[in-house]
Nucleic acid binder design. Sequence first.
DNA 1: CACGACTCCTGCTGGC
DNA 2: TGCCAGCAGGAGTCGT
Length: 274
Amino acid sequence: MPELPEVEVVRRGLEPKVAGAIVQSLSVREPRLRWPVPTDLARRLRGARLRSVGRRGKYLLFDFGAGTLIVHLGMSGQLRLRAPGTRAERHDHVDIETSAGLLRFTDPRRFGAILWHDAAQGDVLAHPLLAHLGVEPLSSLFDGALLYRLSRGRSLTIKQMLLSGREVVGVGNIYASESLFRAGISPRARAGRLSRVRCDALAEAIRQTLRDAISRGGSSLRDFVDSDGAHGHFQLDCQVYGRAGEACRRCGAMIKIIRQQQRSSFYCPSCQRP
DNA sequence: CACGACTCCTGCTGGC
DNA sequence: TGCCAGCAGGAGTCGT
């Protein structure tokens, strides 16, 4: 479900409400997520005070001082703040009862993850899952120069490079297609062949696409909801994603769909060049 | 190292 | 109308 904008929308929704909250209890109904929920999590969290809610790529980072709760929403995860006592339904796998309310993790496909990183093990950003992530696309470190430098000598397609998360994080299948359309670049273009000018255009397109999506409250393709259960509106503005066979809004040509690495890519064959 | 295929899981949807 | 194959927004791991 969630790419960077959706995760950021969840983070922004939660942070002002739960920062400073004390954890009262934690209950795990289904520990079998992408990796097992740590068995000692309840003991570690009980009585702990949540300092802040951060984000790295698509990972949410709940800082408790003594350690960090790492949460990934996978493809179908939700993290919502509910009234205490709200009845658990199917796929409501983990509840964190806090002084600010019930923080509930729901994930039908169980591709999500809830992990603990102890402060004694060092900076959470050095965690194996986070250490090799690319640059944050909305930070000042990300621009066309970086994209150009990191793509030299690479034979994979630009779509695949964006999805890998090793150069830039947070761009998933929807926003990769949308960003490439904005930049006029075919998803099939070889990353290593992109000119500096086109890298500039792509970096700017990625930043604009993600900012727009965040400001609209995230994509609501399928079932994305924010921490209050509200749906986003980005899907209303998709230029190519999910529009195979329809007319390009810019030139009228028919939007195409192709498969790349088992994922669909949507693009306008007229507006986007290899 | 770089790259691509495979995999985990449940819920829909589209085509028959 | 009903059924079911195939596809879905992620990304770590493994084989080449």
